[in-house]
Amino acid sequence: MQKRNGGRWFRLVMAMLPLLGLLIFSDAAFAAAEPPPVEVDWWIWVVALFVFSFFLGIVAVVAGVGGGVLYVPIVSSLFPFHLDFVRGAGLMVALAGALSAGSPLLKKGLANLKLALSMALIGSVSSIFGALAGLALPSHVIQLTLGLTIVFIAIIMLRAKKSEFPEVAAPDRLSQILHIQGIYYEDSLKKDIDWKIHRTPVGLLLFVVIGFMAGMFGLGAGWANVPVFNLVLGAPLKVSVATSVFVLSINDTAAAWVYLHKGAVLPLIAVPSIAGMMLGTKIGARLLTRVKTKSVRVIVITLLLLAGFRAILKGFGI
């Protein structure tokens, strides 16, 4: 019975995705930067945003991506909100998700506080500057760079390798000074996994760049945090994913304050998005074992590419 329900949900999500693709390229979507017609009541947009964020939450979990990275390009294409408010809401969506997921990940010992704090300190400073830059630059420049970034993220998702348990021959000096190491229980192997990291200075530099981009585009940054933790620093994949969520909660907080102070967070847009996305991720987590995650991932990458190219076209005024 449960399996049949899962199938029904999956079909519903799948049915919605081509619609999204169509809408991304529709005339209405292209007119998003223009003053919208006023005949649609505000509450219809708010309810539509809630429902849309709900489905986005399901798809995000099933595809294994953060909600923020899907939210900003797709909502800015489909809804009549200015990109400033979509990015502000995107940051709040990513922040709320990270806050609610953070506690269990820390309790299980998957997220590592010391690894996160060391990287987040530098990343949060750059995310403030990223947010300031994002709100200061003209919209078409942000559209263009957002589009390029989204296409880049889609390519990373397509090509990036993952390493369950990377080899770290010896920890570097800085990680030893910072005591960044740990042990977690790997359920699939029924044993403790001892891990340490290397190339810490390189990781710190990369987090400067990641923080800046996260703040600038309001994307969240799991797509970049995880490969850096996993492939550059050599943390196990599960530790990388969990610690990434935790770093997000700190870096997005820093950038969110800039958006709040600039008046770029509208409750009418941010709250339905947060609520819809959080409900959706809970449902998505239940569906995770019942749907073909690989097919959903391909669809999400395709959607990201479409949304990315759309943003690039918008950036060029096409």
Partner: peptide, 21 residues
Amino acid sequence: DNHAHPNNAQLVYAFVLHWVS
């Protein structure tokens, strides 16, 4: 750090985060 259970600081953070969020 060197045992499979999260350390005290991590548990305190998790506790506060749970209630605050």
